[in-house]
């Protein structure tokens, strides 16, 4: 039992995967994950996946980037090394905008990109799902639905039968 990772059903189209995901959720399974070669609209909603952390961290880091840029400029130009250039005031805020703006963008863009990877747990060397037969086609034309062994309702026969009934063309037990 401990070596078992999940029961994985293989489907031929996004619609079948979607319907299977809906059905599985309705049956009460919770530890369910779907794999597809394309993003499928609404699939994550069906699986009840919701993570507002990414947009929020982007926003916060953006504000932080802006503050860093503007703060650095203000501190260096008015306090640390005040220096008269062309009679402009030390605190030349209109001219401080571009750098602050670029840093806002830099911080938030990298938070969005790297944050996505980190929250997704990437980079990752290996994952049990790769033990699934024919999973190399999950990046091309096959769609997989995995019900993890950790799920309370999980039962080898029953779960496999259910996936079969939902139209899976291949159901396989995947080990860790």
């Amino acid at each position: 039992m401990s070596k078992m990772y999940a029961m994985v059903g293989e489907f031929a189209s996004p619609e079948e995967l979607m319907n299977a995901a809906i059905a599985v959720r309705e049956k009460g399974y919770r530890k369910v994950e779907a794999y597809s070669p394309i993003p499928i609209e609404g699939l994550a909603d069906v699986l009840d996946f919701d993570d507002p952390r990414l947009p929020w961290s982007v926003f916060i880091m953006g504000v932080l980037g802006c503050a860093t840029g503007f703060g650095l400029e203000t501190w260096t130009a008015t306090m640390n090394y005040p220096w008269n250039v062309g009679g402009k005031p030390y605190f030349s805020w209109p001219n401080f905008i571009p750098v602050a703006y670029e840093l806002t963008i830099l911080f938030s863009a990298f938070t969005a990109g790297l944050g996505m990877l980190i929250l997704n747990g990437l980079p990752r060397l290996h994952h049990p799902i790769f033990n699934t037969p024919r999973f190399e086609r999950a990046s091309s034309d096959l769609f997989f639905l995995a019900i993890e062994a950790k799920d309370g309702l999980f039962d080898r026969e029953e779960t496999a039968q259910m996936l079969q009934d939902l139209g899976a063309q291949l159901v396989s037990e995947v080990e860790k």
Partner: peptide
Amino acid sequence: RGSAEHWRR
């Protein structure tokens, strides 16, 4: 690995 969670994020 193209999971629904991956794709959403």
